[in-house]
Design a protein around this nucleic acid. Structure first.
Length: 500
RNA sequence: GAUCGAGUAGCUCAGUAGGUAGAGCAUCUCCCUUUUAAGGAGAGGGUCCUGGGUUCGAGCCCCAGCUCGAUCACCA
């Protein structure tokens, strides 16, 4: 391992600090009594404050210096005068420790008095300086000028994601994205809890990866000597809880899908699923738009936000279009009553690739995906999906070829998915068997049969509506981020080569 | 998995028909008691992603690989 010049200098400084009898990593608590933000918000001339944070810049002018102290809430300027912090003859603390041995990135604690500088900046006149933690690796230096232009931003996406801790320290606005993320989730939690629904936890390791169509990650349990799958969804477990007698259950779930990665997909991602007894999908549409409108208002103070070049309004009510009408509108093709052959022929003559494993439902889904999806920029509920594509969804009350399902599209992407849940155990068994046939035809996304889930349904599940919403995508909309990696602290990356 | 683009100092980036590797910030030394992206003066710092090839000579050209990004495929 070879160290850069700057790293060697810092390690040498560390040793010199120790030689002076100062512990660079003290154990004792530091009695912080304020933050940079609070100190400024409640500023009173000469008020004593005790602050701690990282040293982010220094302007040394002989016997006096200015520096920036950064804590979790922001930055504040500190003024350090040699004779203020070194009252006696010994000026080591200023001349040696502060000026020579401390570096940008070091954690220090200061006790001092608030004052306003000549130029009018609220600052702390330091009386006591304490080394709290020495940093031996130099941080990138990012500066912002008076006009708000950022100089030398730390921009390499690879480094930003691999070393998110650095990104959070030096890049303005990164922390805010994650604060917004938590705020989105808390707003949803509050909304559900107000209605009396119960937050629950269900298994991540599942013997049968059910509830969605996707390729799972597989692992192995040694004691049981059996394969286990990381969940691709938690739907079937939450429904079991509805069978068990809860009126409403929800879970913020990490799901795992062994598929490609791009700017809207990460192998592990967060979905909120909620199931409410005695409701149907019409109720769930009202509920969903109310929830999303509240989230948008909480984050932006208004029910709309900018996403890329689009202004998106989450004000209720959202547009509602049946899948049949959506296809008719964007292609002029009426899928009503068409046979599998007719659909296939239409696809082929309209530039949609199909293969022999595609059934009727999949063909319709392809048409929608190719021709319609991208047009729904403003929040739109697409309703009444073909039965074959929705094996866990109740048959439509007016049309046996359709289901009571909706998906919410925003900016041309699916954001949420919901059903009037299928609670007829005989029908559910038949649907699973249909899936099995698809699987045998070569559809590797077809669902597995979960016998225990069927058993639960046989005991009886009340009419129920369920909804799942992609939290990462919702946060992307709320923070105007085009990449999922920007809303995940630690997005999946290939392992990096060992540095040493 | 496919195509295209990128990889040079701690960070952001230049780089010449192929001919001794550059700037700003950061770092180090000296001077300075109210400065705020950058006070002044000077100095040090590089496996130019890795490995091959072409060439008298490669950061630059060619081949292979690695990592990241964009687009596509699969999907949410």
């Amino acid at each position: 391992m070879s160290l850069s010049e700057q790293e060697q200098v810092r390690r040498e400084s560390l040793n010199q600090i120790k030689d002076l009898g100062i512990n660079p990593y003290p154990a004792a608590l530091f009695p912080v009594n304020s933050t940079s933000k609070e100190a400024k918000d409640t500023f009173e001339e000469d008020k004593e404050v005790i602050l701690a944070g990282r040293l982010m810049s220094r302007r040394i002018m002989g016997k006096a210096s200015f520096a920036e102290l950064k804590d979790s809430k922001g930055k504040i300027q500190i003024y350090i005068n040699r004779d203020e912090i070194c009252q006696g003859e010994d000026k080591t603390l200023y001349n040696t420790v502060f000026k020579k041995l401390l570096d940008i990135g070091d954690f220090i604690g200061v006790k001092g008095n608030l004052f306003t500088t000549k130029v009018g900046e609220q600052s702390v006149k330091v009386k006591e300086l304490t080394v709290l933690s020495k940093s031996i690796r130099p941080l990138p230096i990012v500066k912002t000028d008076e006009e708000g232009n950022v100089h030398d931003a730390f921009t390499d996406p690879e480094l930003r994601y691999r070393q998110r801790y650095v990104d959070l320290i030096v890049n303005e606005g990164v922390k805010e994205v994650f604060l917004a993320r938590t705020k989105v989730m808390n707003t949803m939690r509050d909304f559900f809890n107000e209605k009396g629904y119960l937050e629950v936890e269900t298994p991540i390791l599942q013997p049968i990866p059910g509830g969605a169509a996707a390729r799972p990650f597989i692992t192995h349990h040694n004691t049981l000597d059996m394969p286990l799958y990381l969940r691709i969804a938690n739907e079937l477990y939450l429904k079991r809880l509805i069978v068990g007698g809860f009126d409403g259950v929800y879970e913020f779930a990490k799901d795992f899908r062994n598929e490609g990665m791009d700017r809207t997909h990460n192998p592990e991602f967060t979905v909120m699923e909620i199931y409410v007894a005695y409701k149907d999908y019409n109720w769930m549409m009202d509920f969903t738009e109310e929830m999303i409108e509240r989230v948008a208002k909480t984050i932006h103070g208004k029910p709309s936000c900018t996403f890329g070049k689009n202004e998106i309004s989450f004000a209720r009510p959202f547009k509602r279009v049946t899948m049949t009408d959506a296809i008719k509108e964007h292609t002029g093709f009426d899928i009503t009553g068409k046979t599998e052959e007719e659909l296939k022929t239409w696809c082929k003559s309209n530039g949609i690739e199909v293969d022999d494993t595609f059934g009727k439902g999949k063909l319709i889904d392809e048409i929608f995906g190719e021709k319609c999806e991208q047009h729904y920029i403003q929040p739109t509920f697409i309703t009444d999906y073909p039965k074959e594509m929705s094996p866990l969804c109740k048959e439509h009350r007016d049309n046996p070829e359709l289901t009571e399902r909706f998906e919410l599209f925003v900016n041309g992407k699916e954001l949420a998915n919901a059903y009037s849940e299928l609670n007829d155990p005989i029908d559910q068994r038949e649907r699973f068997e249909e899936q099995l046939k698809l699987s045998e035809k070569g559809d590797d996304e077809a669902m597995f049969i979960d016998q225990d889930f069927l058993r639960a349904l046989e005991y009886g599940m009340p009419p129920t509506s369920g909804m799942g919403i992609g939290i990462d995508r919702l946060v992307m909309f709320m923070t105007n981020k085009q990449s999922i990696q920007e809303v995940l602290f630690f997005p999946q990356m290939r392992p990096e080569k060992q540095e040493s």
